[in-house]
Design a protein around this nucleic acid. Structure first.
Ligand SMILES: [Mn+2]
Ligand SMILES: [Mn+2]
Ligand SMILES: [Zn+2]
Ligand SMILES: [Zn+2]
Lengths: 139, 139
DNA sequence: ATCAATAATAGTAACTGTTACTATTATAAG
DNA sequence: CTTATAATAGTAACAGTTACTATTATTGAT
């Protein structure tokens, strides 16, 4: 349960992180983003990258994915889905769900042999909807 | 990328972990499972709980969920889905998807006000499907 | 039932990704 | 320009998980 605060000023660190992530179609980790942004801002710190990626995700500018051991970030915040390879961990986009999705009878998608599917709804539980909370358990 | 090995012998530690998890409708963390199993086996170690939960998940006996900061485990391995509260982190089951799921126009599910939905397909990428691999990037 | 081979364990150290802390710098309002 | 303070760089601390090692338990063979 951490309190992610809204940005109140602009910084070229945050802007660069956002710009660089938006250029990518991959789903980099924080460390991968750090390496990319350092080409523009050689003195940026890894902590700054983590803090801003969280901020941007909490604000809906980007999306945080929790697939592997480390989180991955997606500059494409419009609605789409993902496949992850169970062996190498590679993550690819799936733009549209199969029409028979509810029946769960797909065996191939985006070239992948599909072996499973996880759906995670994110929402506000009845108890929390009464309180007015700024905190977030997890982005 | 870790190599999760198949169990070759039975142990009452692993059996107890599985039995106790199957009794629950909640989605406990490894530490929560540790505390539960210790009531039956007071000398079990936390490492054993982690190792066996991974094994059981890799074998499809249970399901590993990666929502919050720590992984959660689900003794119900039959097809169903989850809602997570963005504020308190509570996880609940959603047994059936709404029929209009593909259109993504739901605003309430299981009492939760829905603000998002993530779909993660798990599969084998074209490159890995050629090789014959035992390793797994992530359960 | 005893034995031998070795899988699995308990206990703990090490590791990894992430978050917190603090002095310094940059932003933006007045 | 000045001033208040948000945001930063650099680093320490932390949490969850995984690896290591000596010991114990399981299983198949005798
Ligand atoms: Mn994507
Ligand atoms: Mn469940
Ligand atoms: Zn692959
Ligand atoms: Zn809640």
């Amino acid at each position: 349960m951490k309190n992610i605060k809204r940005p109140q000023r602009r910084s070229k660190q945050r802007q660069t992180i956002l710009d660089e992530l938006k250029k990518l179609t991959t789903h980099p980790t924080a460390v991968e983003m750090y390496e990319i942004v350092r080409e523009t801002l050689p003195n940026i710190s890894l902590g700054t990258v983590y803090r801003n990626l969280e901020m941007l995700a909490a604000n809906g500018n980007i999306v945080k994915l929790k697939f592997g051991t480390s989180a991955r970030f997606d500059g494409n915040s419009s609605r789409h889905y993902h496949v992850r390879c169970i062996h190498c961990g590679e993550v690819n986009d799936i733009d549209e769900l199969p029409e028979d999705f509810v029946k769960q009878d797909f065996d191939k998608l985006g070239g992948y042999k599909i072996v499973g599917c996880k759906v995670e709804f994110v929402g506000i539980c009845p108890t929390c909807s009464e309180k007015n909370i700024n905190e977030v358990s997890q982005v």
